[in-house]
Design a protein around this nucleic acid. Structure first.
Length: 432
RNA sequence: GGAGAGGUGGCCGAGUGGUUGAAGGCGCUGCUCUCGAAAAGCAGUGUGCGGGCAACUGUACCGAGGGUUCGAAUCCCUCCCUCUCCGCCA
């Protein structure tokens, strides 16, 4: 959530930017609740002070009739005010949490994804001397993907991934872990982008795939209506990204400044209900209820938050370039970046078999929006406390990137060449 | 699944109704001592929220939420979590 002090100081700005993100929150009402809340709190604290004072003077002895009467009256008054406060508090918090994070100034203003700006196109779209096929037309006949049987067992939007395509997935994983663990590469990316950041490789993490309601809700990532699966008999949700169990990892913790930045690359199977996407991307494996994903997560000081975001974007581009995939770079508009985001970048890879770009990567700069509710803070060298900044970004969403590889590396005879950088991780296999 | 134990400050650990935000110890910080270090001594050392330019101050917090009471870490209720043993299982 946003800092209430910021809202108090900049009500018009907050209202404006909230609108720009397509959210309808009554900021004036929020501020009214805020001041009511504070007024009520002051009254309550005064009553409590008097109660404490009395308890102090009667310690160890039986209170007089008169003191009992005063105490009872205080109690009644308190109960009344506290009931009011509880209601105000509930409304206040609901409204405050409804306010999205403020977009940075370079985020294009727009109320539909059409306003996303393509800021650059990289890599040549290969020309084929045959009609390139979509990935499912290559993979399904060859038994690399079986969605039909998966549908029988699990329903639509599930798949059995099989054979060398599985090997390819594990090769991608190995490639990413090696790349993100390589100090030289991290240093190079930091230098090339003039970032003021520590050279520190990413630590691989296998996080839990499920999490409880309380931390999930605090992460501002729980979306019960459209995205998140819940387990019927437990207070547990299936994560929709490793990000969800990574960003919550330091829930309610104060981190020493020396620990930062913390750079993780998490690997997890991710689950999404995809409610409201019926009929969209029904073929192939680009939109599934279940997919594996490598996700980067960074905790940093507030000063370095933006640079960490830029580093993650640089890492993403590097990874995509290494795979030799043509892509375009999207600066997402206010509507599309998501509620907790201050800025959001997408990378869309070219899918020649479908003759279109498809989103394969997202980088989210969250500032302190998540950390405030998650209560993740940094103890500065001087002893002060600050909220950390969180950043998350896709390394590779395996389903989509396998599909992109299949389509870009397909051959005339319906096979798939293995991208150069993956060959060392594929044994002798050079072609699927 | 069965049985049991337990959740208190950065850590360990006291504390069953009233100077307990919390004994004691450890750790950490500062000072004294020292050429320096260690030891010793002294002092300090949580977080949120409200108020204040600030020093500071009020309030809340002993797993969570309710309740009893003039007053709750302490009594009652509900829930959550952790650990141990047995069973089952990758």
């Amino acid at each position: 959530m946003l800092d209430i002090q910021f809202v108090r100081d900049n009500p018009e700005l907050v209202q404006e930017k909230t609108k720009q993100k397509g959210y309808d929150v009554d900021i004036a009402k929020l501020l009214k609740l805020d001041s009511e809340r504070r007024a009520r709190l002051t009254q309550i604290e005064e009553l409590r002070r008097r109660r404490n004072e009395q308890a102090e003077t009667t310690k160890g002895q039986k209170p007089s009739e008169e003191q009992l009467a005063v105490g009872k009256q205080l109690k009644e008054e308190l109960a009344r005010h506290e009931a009011d406060l509880q209601q105000i508090d509930t409304d206040y918090l609901a409204l405050l949490k409804a306010v999205p994070n403020m977009p940075l100034d370079d985020v294009p203003v727009g109320l539909s994804e059409k306003e996303n700006k393509v800021t650059k196109k990289v890599g040549e779209q290969k020309t084929y001397d045959f009609q390139p096929k979509p990935h499912w037309e290559i993979a399904e006949p060859r038994g690399l993907i079986d969605k039909e049987r998966a549908a029988k067992i699990s329903g639509s939007r599930f798949a059995y991934i099989k054979g060398d395509l599985v090997r390819l997935q594990f090769a991608v994983i190995q490639f990413v872990l090696q790349t993100l663990g390589d100090e030289k590469i991290i240093r190079k990316l930091i230098q090339e982008n003039n970032l003021k950041l520590a050279v520190k490789p990413f630590t691989p993490v296998l996080p839990p795939a499920v999490l409880r309601t309380e931390p999930y809700a605090a992460s501002a990532r729980l979306n019960a209506e459209e995205v998140t699966y819940r387990l019927a008999n437990d207070d547990l949700w299936l994560n929709a990204s490793a990000e969800h169990t990574l960003c919550t990892m330091y829930w309610n913790e104060i981190l020493p400044e020396e620990m930062l930045p913390i750079r993780y690359v998490g690997y997890s199977t991710s689950f999404r209900r995809e409610a409201g996407t019926y009929g969209k991307d029904t073929e192939g494996i680009v939109r599934m209820h279940q997919f594996d994903k490598l996700e980067m997560e960074v905790f940093s000081t507030p000063e370095t938050g933006l640079d960490e975001h830029l580093l993650l974007v640089a890492v993403q581009e590097y990874l995509v370039q290494q795979l030799g995939l043509p892509y375009q770079f999207l600066l997402k508009c206010t509507f599309d970046i998501g509620k907790p985001n201050a800025r959001g970048i997408d990378i869309e890879c070219w899918f020649p078999g479908q003759n279109r770009y498809i989103e394969t990567h997202t980088a989210d700069f969250i500032t302190d929006y998540q950390a405030r509710d998650l209560k993740i803070r940094v103890r500065r060298q001087d002893g002060n406390l600050d909220l950390v900044h969180t950043n998350d970004a896709t390394a590779f969403a395996l389903g989509r990137i396998l599909a992109a590889i299949i389509e870009n590396y397909q051959t005339a005879d319906g096979r798939v060449r293995v991208p150069e950088v993956l060959i060392p991780f594929m044994g002798d296999i050079r072609e699927l």
